[in-house]
Simulated assay, not measured.
Amino acid sequence: MTPSPSAPALLLHASGLCFARNDEPVFGPLRFDLGPGEALLVLGGNGAGKTTLLRVLAGLLPATEGEVHLQGRRVDREHLARGTAYLSHLHGHKAELSTLENLAYTRALQGGGGTSPGEALAEVGLAGYEDTPARRLSAGQNKRLSLARLRLQSAPVWLLDEPYANLDLDGIALVNRLIQAHLASGGAALLTTHGAYAAPPVPVRTLALGAQELPA
């Protein structure tokens, strides 16, 4: 009997994941998986811990309990930071540097496959702003620059906190295209959204924080 082909390894697996602040539980225990081509939408009201969860998965905060595996291997905070790309509420740019200089810095630190900083700027609609300091960009333009920086990272797992915030309809469509392309290339995305933009136009599973959290 011919053995069936093995399923692709999970990109992200969390088990018993908890976070507490000042001994007060914020979320958990959580158990969830993300495989290649999958998107997971984190749901929950204000204070449920959506942003905190993404920060834990990005390696920016230490989990109180539990473990995380990336591509089948248990990882610590350092390796979480290397294996995930995090888009937060704060754009994280160097205000005095130009858009191109900010992206060149990102590429030098994290690599970017075959995409150049100039190509990434053009892809997000910032062609012509190569020499513009980040401090002179609007909120929507800064979000686009953050998306260009995301494009230059080779991490298989994207962590997107309110990726549609501060964007017009063209920007929202841009986010959807980037997510679709990332999933089509075998990546995965975990995201939070609000308002009318409930989810990108891809098959999405949900993870509810709060009263409906999953058992460890």
Score class of each variant (00 low, 15 high):
Leu169Asp: 13
Gly187Gln: 09
Thr193Lys: 12
Ser88Glu: 02
Asp131Trp: 00
Leu11Glu: 11
Gln141Met: 11
Leu137Tyr: 05
Ala211Ile: 13
Pro203Phe: 06
Ala211Asp: 13
Gly45Phe: 04
Gly187Trp: 12
Glu213Ser: 11
Phe27Val: 01
Glu123Arg: 15
Glu123Thr: 14
Leu30Thr: 13
His93Ala: 04
Ala20Gln: 14
Gln212Leu: 14
Leu54Gln: 09
Asn22Arg: 15
Ala7Trp: 00
Val56Gly: 11
Gly28Cys: 01
Gln212Glu: 03
Gly187Asp: 11
Gly195Phe: 10
Leu97Phe: 15
Leu41Ser: 06
Asp76Phe: 07
Arg151Tyr: 05
Arg21Val: 04
Gly195Leu: 10
Val204Tyr: 03
Ala184Glu: 14
His79Asp: 01
Asn46Cys: 05
Ala184Arg: 15
Gly186Lys: 12
Leu11Lys: 14
Ala81Arg: 15
Pro117Tyr: 05
Leu178His: 09
Tyr164Val: 13
Leu209Trp: 04
Val75Asn: 07
Val42Gln: 03
Asp168Met: 05
Arg151Val: 11
Leu137Phe: 08
Gly112Ala: 12
Ala127His: 10
Leu137Lys: 12
Pro29Gly: 07
Asn102Thr: 08
Val68Ser: 10
Glu24His: 14
Gln71Ile: 00
His194Val: 04
Leu178Lys: 12
Gln153Phe: 04
Leu40Glu: 00
Leu214Phe: 00
Ala181Trp: 07
Gly72Ser: 02
Glu96Gln: 15
Arg135Gln: 07
Pro3Ser: 11
Pro203Ile: 04
Ala173Asn: 09
Ser185Arg: 15
Ile172Met: 12
Arg82Thr: 03
Leu121Asn: 12
Gly28Trp: 01
Leu103Ala: 12
Glu123His: 13
Glu67Thr: 10
Leu97Ile: 01
Leu103Ile: 12
Ala63Ile: 02
Gly113Pro: 04
Ala95Ile: 03
Glu213Trp: 09
Lys50Ile: 05
His69Gln: 14
Gly187Tyr: 12
Gln212Arg: 11
Asn166Arg: 09
Gln141Thr: 06
Gly112His: 13
Asn46Lys: 13
Leu54Gly: 04
His182Trp: 13
Asn22Thr: 06
Val75Asp: 03
Ala134Phe: 08
Glu67Phe: 02
Thr132Gly: 00
Pro3Val: 11
His79Gly: 00
Gln180Gly: 09
Glu67Lys: 05
Thr206Ile: 00
Leu10Met: 10
Leu12Phe: 08
Pro133Cys: 07
Pro25Met: 10
Gly112Gln: 14
Ala189Asp: 08
Ala85Gly: 03
Gly47Gln: 06
Ile172Cys: 12
Leu11Thr: 09
Leu183Ile: 02
Asn142Met: 15
Ala48Gln: 06
His194Phe: 09
Ala216Leu: 08
Gly16Val: 08
Val202Cys: 07
Ser146Gln: 15
Val157Met: 03
Arg135Lys: 11
Leu160Met: 14
Ala48Pro: 03
Leu152Ile: 12
Pro62Ser: 15
Ala216Cys: 08
Leu54Ile: 09
Pro203Trp: 05
Leu40Tyr: 04
Ala165Met: 07
Leu214Tyr: 02
Gly210Ser: 09
Gly140Ser: 08
Val204Asn: 03
Pro117Met: 00
His93Tyr: 01
Asn46Ser: 14
Ile172Asn: 04
His89Tyr: 05
Lys94Pro: 02
Pro203His: 06
Leu169Asn: 06
Thr64Met: 01
Thr84Tyr: 06
Gly113Ser: 01
Pro215Phe: 09
Gln153Asp: 10
Ala139Cys: 02
